[in-house]
Design a protein around this nucleic acid. Structure first.
Length: 930
RNA sequence: GCGGAUGUGGCGGAAUUGGUAGACGCGUCAGACUUAGGAUCUGAUGUCUUCGGACGUGUGGGUUCGAGUCCCUCCAUCCGCACCA
């Protein structure tokens, strides 16, 4: 009788739920282990086979660690705020909470049937007021803190006020927005509103007028990581640049820590590299260029201050604030036209026109502060307002963009760096700039003959001595825009008094989402929350109408899991001290710059304010690969309802069409099923292969409905059971690599599960395990397997563990082993992978408790010891035959034995061997003259 | 353009410090049992072969007794960034 997975899997899932088998305690003498999955957005489409890949891997680790005696925290929840439910609400009027609740139920059902060992008592939902209270609470803390660059941590704004009272702004080295410096006396003379305005330049959550990514189709602004190639990541709508007043988080203050800490993290090199790029550190200098005839200077940022003498013009970004002052009656029109032009061009067009040189001369000149050279000031959109100071000193000889610009506008080009052995050629002859990262400085007064590195150091000293600039580090990372003009998100705990924002008192949290009549913006273009009645404080002050973005709720959820039902605190100090950080975090690499950056920032801030004991939240991070679809195709003869089989398709003029993968087995089309698939194919005709079968083409593509290649896990679990499904997902290949889903292979794993079951049962299906003593061979295969699986789980190499289980079960099956001393440890070892069948067998072995906490067997080296080894014998590196020899034989004896072997004579010929290499327990290689 | 990763049978993929290439599984072929097979079991299965062997881990070279693994060159694919001064 075969294994009845339907009945048995249900039985144990119910058992786990009823007994709260996986409930984790915050107090324990056991060592802790925190395994976390990136929580899902509960979409209407439900899970597909790609989602559970990471969950299965983390579940195996969680279960394995429990068996190894760890107190394991393995929670799950939902990232439940988000655009799809809101878009649906706009279309249908259904409250997003209703849609979300429905989708969550479906997710939960799908998750439950896979047999995960989550502690569901710790579930969190970002849209639950009991949860988002703490998102709001953290926002208020961010609002009330500033970043001290000298202390390298966040400090309360109350302390900043004291510093201003005492010394004004001079002594403060903070991450801030620019403002005019002031003295203590000035500070005290400012009005309340003026003081608030100043403080806003320092707060870690701040309101400011900035250039934002505005997405008209979604009616909201987006953060940089939510925009890809000028389109919104969600929905693919065009995005434009717009100046708006928005909340931002000052993540830039943490740029250096975010960058430096990467070295300490056990994350994949690729993700760390993506984050390094995103942070984009560059060392250089800011240099002040006076504007001729004006009381103004333009600050430029450069990574190559050593080329200062080669600067022959300056370029400002069109959005640069000084541009207004440079307008004169003569050039006003030209400048405005140019600015208008670059503003109207979408991001997309700007990118497409990279190579086209454009710009406009302002009619003004800057003065090079080291040699007094007057250089023309241009405006051009190849200079970005958001990077550096939004202004550059152009060095056309050594920068390709500046070079192209100089050629286009016929500006001088002066070489200031050369190779030591290079003949200097007139720059007029050059076809391109010489982007010299090393070399010797020429034409540069004091710094002539220095090499680039020295020259940079020297020139920065000069700049600082003369007070005409300073050395600095610049970051590409931008502050995170934190407001969204949407409904389905966390309301800001902020009200306005005389136009200035103030935080709500903690006792007023959570500030719950109000009911609205419609989920659209108002007629005046205000966000949906402006529709709410009485959206004010008790005193009548208006509340903020934007909501927080998707990453708000996901930035700190891993802390809430530590103490999810605490209504007094975000999480208790004790809970945090015990669980500390996430030991293993699994999720997709699409979150490399978004979630993983914000979460680290969030965690660092909470660390700074003394909430937590670890600065970095995720010690080890694994990115599971995506599962791609495997599509099938049929070939329709153009203009006919006739289909040609794969190998004959070239004989006709055909058109390739996707066909539902459920109608295809082993690439052979079920013709009858195909005819019934869609009415138009009812009378279709077919030109099959010569054996009468219709063969389909195939290709690996993204899994999507329109390609008819979506594999639904529910169907597979119905057909094969959860244990088989879990094993197969793991067997597919390394967890981190992308791989195509091919349902065919699941049969092999299904066979394995049945063979495994048969090990413990006789042919009639009766449980059959004996107390006989195992022999050396049986112990050897068991302990080999224990060893391999332990090592594999450490490396998260689950595909090779499954192989090892197959090898082990095949071998024990051949030996007809029925011995408890072998089979009992084996079932514990298999249980993290296939927990249902393992529980059932464990139960039949006579245990009344769950297998989830059974002690994981250790391996004993003694059982693995061999007394002989089958040496591969090579001649000139080519393996010719194998010879079994005892392991205690000396090298000389091995050499002798091999050379005396009759098979050697053939390869030796009549000459003695030139050399014999013997590596004990590895190989014998004999070198013969050719 | 810059940075990162990956290239192994028909397919998914294995291969400690350089030491038997292709484990395990799918598929395919043959056989057994069957009324039947998309069930089960057994065996074969990298390519070519004059059956001696030869060739084989993207390409070309190098180091080595020995290279999928180390070094150099080039090619392809995927991912990230991209006017970042």
């Amino acid at each position: 009788m075969d294994y009845n997975f339907n009945e048995i899997e249900k039985k144990w899932q119910d058992f786990w739920a009823e007994n709260k088998t996986f409930k984790a305690e915050n107090k324990s003498d056991k060592p802790k282990y925190y395994v976390l999955d990136m929580f899902p957005y509960p979409s209407g489409a439900g899970l597909h086979v790609g989602h559970p890949l990471g969950y299965i891997a983390s579940d195996i680790v969680a279960r394995f660690k429990r068996n190894e005696g760890f107190n394991v925290l393995h929670p799950m929840g939902y990232d439940a705020f988000g655009l799809p439910a809101e878009q649906y609400a706009i279309q249908t009027g259904t409250h997003p909470a209703v849609t979300t609740e429905k989708n969550i139920k479906r997710y939960r059902r799908q998750l439950d049937q896979i047999g995960f060992s989550f502690d569901w008592d710790r579930e969190v939902r970002t849209c639950d007021p009991g949860y988002y209270k703490w998102t709001q609470w953290t926002f208020v803390r961010l609002f009330e803190h500033w970043y001290d660059l000298d202390w390298d941590k966040a400090r309360p704004v109350s302390e900043l006020k004291k510093i201003f009272d005492k010394d004004g702004s001079k002594e403060v080295n903070a991450a801030k927005n620019d403002h005019e410096p002031f003295t203590a006396e000035q500070w005290k003379s400012f009005s309340e509103t003026e003081q608030q305005q100043i403080l806003m330049h320092y707060r870690l959550a701040y309101l400011s007028e900035t250039l934002v990514n505005w997405c008209p189709a979604l009616g909201t602004v987006l953060a940089n990581d939510e925009v890809k190639d000028g389109y919104s990541e969600r929905g693919g709508h065009p995005v434009e640049q717009k100046k708006m007043k928005q909340w931002s988080l000052r993540i830039r203050a943490y740029a250096e820590r975010l960058l430096n800490n990467l070295d300490k993290l056990n994350w994949s090199e690729s993700i760390k590299e993506i984050q390094r790029n995103w942070i984009g550190q560059s060392e250089g200098a800011v240099i002040y260029f006076p504007v001729k005839g004006k009381e103004k200077t333009i600050d430029v940022f450069t990574t190559r201050p050593d080329t200062l003498y080669g600067s022959t013009f300056m370029v400002l970004a069109p959005e640069h604030e000084i541009v207004d002052e440079l307008k004169t009656e003569d050039n006003k029109h030209k400048i405005e036209e140019y600015i208008e032009r670059s503003k109207n061009r979408s991001e997309r067009e700007r990118l497409a026109e990279v190579k086209e040189v454009s710009g406009v001369f302002t009619g003004h000149y800057g003065v090079n502060p080291v040699n007094g050279r007057e250089v023309p000031i241009y405006i051009a959109d190849y200079v970005l307002s958001g990077y550096g100071t939004g202004a550059i000193m152009a060095v056309p000889a050594h920068d390709s963009r500046d070079f192209a610009f100089a050629r286009h506008f016929d500006l001088p080009i002066i070489q200031v760096v050369k190779n030591p052995d290079e003949q200097v050629v007139d720059t007029a002859q050059w076809n391109d700039s010489y982007d010299a990262k090393e070399g010797v400085i020429i034409n540069s007064d004091f710094i002539n003959d220095l090499d680039v590195e020295e020259a940079i150091r020297r020139i920065i000293d000069i700049l600082e001595e003369k007070n005409i600039g300073y050395g600095t580090v610049n970051y590409r990372l931008r502050d995170a825009i934190f407001s969204r003009q949407r409904y389905w998100g966390e309301p800001f705990p902020i009200y306005y008094k005389e136009g200035m924002p103030y935080p709500l008192d903690d006792s007023k949290l959570p500030l719950e989402l109000p009911e609205v009549d419609e989920y659209k913006p108002t007629k005046e273009g205000k966000p949906p929350l402006a529709r709410a009645k009485h959206w004010t404080t008790e005193e009548g002050y208006p509340l903020e109408t934007s909501t927080m973005p998707g990453f708000a709720g996901s930035s700190g959820y891993y802390y809430r899991y530590m103490d999810p039902n605490n209504d007094q605190e975000y999480f208790s100090n004790e809970a945090n001290q015990y669980w500390r950080d996430v030991d293993l975090y699994l999720g997709g690499d699409e979150h490399a710059t978004g979630h993983l950056m914000y979460a680290r920032f969030w965690a660092m801030f909470l660390y700074d304010i003394g909430m937590t004991v670890e600065e970095e939240p995720f010690k080890r991070l694994i990115n599971q690969g995506k599962i791609q679809g495997r599509s099938n195709f049929v070939y329709r003869i153009v203009g006919e309802n006739k289909f040609v089989s794969y190998h004959k398709r070239k004989e006709y003029k055909t058109q390739r069409m996707h066909v539902d993968i459920n109608l295809v087995h082993n690439d052979i089309l079920d013709i009858e099923a195909f005819k019934n698939w869609m009415p138009e194919f009812k009378d279709a005709e077919f030109i099959p292969e010569d054996d009468g079968k219709y063969v389909c083409g195939w290709e690996v593509e993204k899994m999507s409905k329109s390609k008819y290649n979506v594999q639904n896990p529910d169907d597979l679990i119905d057909e094969y059971g959860a244990d088989t499904f879990r094993l197969y997902e793991m067997f597919l290949g390394p967890i981190e690599s992308h791989k195509p889903w091919d349902t065919q292979g699941i049969e092999g794993v299904s066979r394995f599960i049945r063979k495994f079951w048969r090990l413990y049962h006789d042919e009639q299906g009766n449980f059959d395990v004996s107390d006989e003593k195992p022999n050396a061979d049986e112990l050897k295969i068991l302990h080999q397997t224990i060893k391999k699986v332990k090592e594999d789980i450490d490396k998260l190499s689950f595909n090779t563990s499954v192989s090892q289980f197959m090898i082990c079960v095949n071998e024990l099956g051949e030996k007809k082993t029925k011995k408890r001393q072998i089979l009992e440890p084996l079932v514990i070892l298999v249980s993290p992978f296939a927990p249902h069948i393992a529980e059932e067998i464990w139960n039949r072995l006579g245990h009344s408790d769950t297998i989830s906490y059974a002690e994981m067997p250790g391996y004993n080296e003694d059982y693995l010891k061999e007394s002989s080894f089958e040496y591969p014998v090579s001649f000139n590196g080519k393996m010719r035959f194998k010879k079994e020899l005892p392991l205690d034989m000396s090298k000389e004896e091995i050499e002798k034995a091999v050379l005396e072997d009759e098979r050697s004579a053939k390869y030796l010929g009549d000459k003695p061997p030139k050399k014999v290499i013997v590596v004990p327990k590895r190989i014998v290689n004999i070198v013969v003259a050719k």
